[in-house]
Design a protein around this nucleic acid. Structure first.
Lengths: 127, 127
DNA sequence: CCGGATCCGGGTAGATACTG
DNA sequence: CAGTATCTACCCGGATCCGG
């Protein structure tokens, strides 16, 4: 009887909580966004330029988590010089873009500060 | 010329980053979800039962932030005893449910552990 | 150089006790 | 009941260092 109401909510603690705990970690969504903007793949040092303020330690940790969770795959080429590590979005990672679009849509509606953000991708207006 | 591509991405650092920094904080989305499940409003101690593991300090801090950002409004009745504080979702807060549904949809597709989560709201399967 | 790992300091979350 | 105070533990940020 209550089931109907709860089914309508389409959400619950277990699934949502686990996912939020993982995706909600600082930098995680922004890393995924950067990967998308890079056409699906980026190198380690490219993130450091894009994600202003991220430290190599945190970046390394997040990328490892994302790789473990299979949102990102890592491809290291140590044969050439210098070493190239390329991180690539998987399909599940790419589909996180829907969530990010949703977040941006919400922000534009309720929180927009910089109007340019609503129109196009402003690399200049990083915090 | 590049503008077209970027516009298609429908997202950028400034808006997304600010919003993720705020909504992505630990417990924030879960608090909003609990409010929704409570029909749009909850009292302080009700959260403590629902959000297993949250401490009053963090709960208080998050609710203050949400109130400041106007996703939640607080209604305190200190005339009677015991004091009643009721927290209510605003319209912008309610619309965050779309984001949470999106997250749950993603999780069900890619990460589901407990199948019951996909069907209805399982209070029992909290971490 | 590039891709990290390590060490250290500060802030934020967690646990518990306490108060109006 | 609705928080605040305190103390601890962990995570994040900054800088440095190191192997390929």
């Amino acid at each position: 009887m209550l089931l109907g109401f709860f089914a309508d909510t389409m959400m619950n603690d277990c699934t949502v909580r686990r996912t939020v705990e993982f995706l909600g970690k600082k930098w995680t969504l922004l890393i995924l966004l950067e990967l998308h903007k890079g056409g699906g793949s980026r190198r380690f040092s490219e993130f450091r330029g894009c994600l202003d303020g991220i430290t190599p330690k945190v970046l390394s940790a997040r990328l490892s988590e994302l790789e473990k969770e299979e949102l990102v795959s890592k491809n290291m080429d140590s044969s050439s010089f210098p070493i190239k590590s390329v991180y690539t979005l998987t399909q599940s990672g790419e589909e996180v873009m829907d969530i990010i679009r949703n977040i941006k849509g919400w922000a534009i509606k309720w929180k927009l500060v910089n109007e340019a953000c609503a129109l196009y991708d402003c690399d200049e207006c990083e915090l």
